[in-house]
Design a protein around this nucleic acid. Sequence first.
DNA 1: CGCAGCTCAGAGAGCGCTTTCCCGCCGGCG
DNA 2: CGCCGGCGGGAAAGCGCTCTCTGAGCTGCG
Lengths: 361, 361
Amino acid sequence: MAEPPQLGNLSRPGERGSARSRLPTLEDVARVAGVSRATVSRVVNGVRNVDPDLHTVVWAAVDATGYVPNRAARSLVTRRAGTVALVVSDSEEHDDDPFLGRFFADPFFGRVVGGMLSVLRPAGVQLGLHLVGSPPARARLVGDLRQGQADGVVLLSLHPDDALPGLLVEAGIAAVMVGRPARPAPISYVDVANEAGAALAVGRLLARGCQHIGLVGGPEHVPASQDRVAGFRQAMARRGYAWSPSESGNFTRESGETAMRRLLAAHPDLDGVFVANDLMAQGALVALHEAGRRVPDDVAVVGFDDSSAAQAAQPPLTTVRHPLEVMAAEATRLLLARIEDPRLRVASVIHDPVLVVRRSA
Amino acid sequence: MAEPPQLGNLSRPGERGSARSRLPTLEDVARVAGVSRATVSRVVNGVRNVDPDLHTVVWAAVDATGYVPNRAARSLVTRRAGTVALVVSDSEEHDDDPFLGRFFADPFFGRVVGGMLSVLRPAGVQLGLHLVGSPPARARLVGDLRQGQADGVVLLSLHPDDALPGLLVEAGIAAVMVGRPARPAPISYVDVANEAGAALAVGRLLARGCQHIGLVGGPEHVPASQDRVAGFRQAMARRGYAWSPSESGNFTRESGETAMRRLLAAHPDLDGVFVANDLMAQGALVALHEAGRRVPDDVAVVGFDDSSAAQAAQPPLTTVRHPLEVMAAEATRLLLARIEDPRLRVASVIHDPVLVVRRSA
DNA sequence: CGCAGCTCAGAGAGCGCTTTCCCGCCGGCG
DNA sequence: CGCCGGCGGGAAAGCGCTCTCTGAGCTGCG
């Protein structure tokens, strides 16, 4: 403390970023403010009572020096990264780009990111992005996370039988899934009430006066698909329809087209169809057009997801929208809470979908 | 070194993640291997010659302990974060979610992420995501970056007159833009040859035999839009068409619909149109359908971007595809190189677009 | 045989921060 | 008036790592 404050020597906030000039540290701020490092730390972190006058002096010194805490140093001692990760997990090998392109090009991904950021930014937490495919990549990820890469994970698991949820739980890493886990696991998640969404669709078709309603389901082992199919059947049953014709696809446009064609061949009197996602519904539209059926006059179609495909379809699709941004935000909130208090119990939050009425039904 | 290796005391790799149990450190590995911390560090980082035997022993100890380097500690001393940031910058205030949803829902974003990851993952570098709107957010970002949040930035600037490129350069932060800066700045970037793309579109329309070709341009001050419009006019001029009817939109579907309607009203004899992006082209399709024009028989339409909207459109759009994933990957490579050697000169890489022929032209 | 010159491992000094421990001061109470 | 408790600030011990410096042991040449 022998040295006097030497403000003049320090580089001013924004200017002269000669890049490698040493950035101001706590020490510098302390010297300028004429206090100890510890005090500056306490003021900056707003911890414990500090003399109001000192408080002012310290903040002034922070401004004067343009001080920004060094994240690495802080993390090292607090054992907090100040970061959460969005992990996209698929069981397929996609170390080659094709997949990358395919999935990330789906707006689905962006909506999740948007929802997460809306919670993360106000909290001052960073968002890291990870993509894992092969099992070794999964193991590496868990290692990186345990070691403090991120404080927690929002997990987007695209494939049933994904081992990652289990691995994360086992490793004691805070994690929340978007979409329920395919295999039951003690992990928090947010999801959309898929059954309710299917019921909404059924309600719409029935309200239009449809008598012969068919179903195009999705892949058998995908939870979202299972729930939508189950919801459809239940809703139909409740309205007195014990059985409905159905076909299944794998959530792609082509598979939807094929399924619809088969459905139509077997049941020419169809006048309404619920398709488990928009992409397949778009394919269905093509098949219906080919078959000379007018939509919605001859056959009404309801999709699911309200993806961009729904708006783009001709005619635009009546579909079920999940509030993905809201769900991602909720997942992030759950995650932050769990990071704060790891003893919090595993929770699930189910959001209600809404029916978006366009022209196809 | 008095103590013998005590492997038994250390937790095994995957199991028993009682979370708060101290993770193995360099020290632990050193003890197990019977060498010094320094040696382990050298082996792990593959630096300098180390006795091959020791090498083996050390790696064995690493496996045995399940050691993973602590990133924070490493960053603290190396002054490297091992992270690059994808920064999405818009001049509008979007601290409210609507924008978030709108932009991130665009597949554009995901394709960039995919391209970046394809380079980043092999390099062992993390990807952080940042979104900045207001000027204070921009300043905060620069502070965070200078302080070492990330080693460099891939910048997606959505708005002309964005101050961020300048700020980054000034602060001496390694940065590469995807898409050329609206205002000239000493910053590296990758871009697509928009003019060439427009020429491709013109070529296609002319080859189909179109005689009366119109243009739906984008926002005036957006570089990509300027280049596409300029490219269109040049290509037309080169083919002898001194002037073409045109209208402008703002890159949204609705604006495309409106622009097309105006164009059609003023020039009913139109038989071809180049629309500066797919979203607007989709709108144009609606307007054409309304006006009773068949596409492509009466009017041929070419879009730009090859977004998911192009595939989804009815009929599917013939469009100009920029290799966005490739561009993002290239930007990332440029960035990593620049981080490695900051004296590298500012570079630009222009990629050629390709025409994707579908049904609309 | 001696010494310069090399290679390679270990000791130890930090990187910038948080946090515990301690100490000095003040007010209140016996 | 003396003692105790509480409050606010400083000193210093690390967090886990990298990297320089030191020194031991070897080779090769004079």
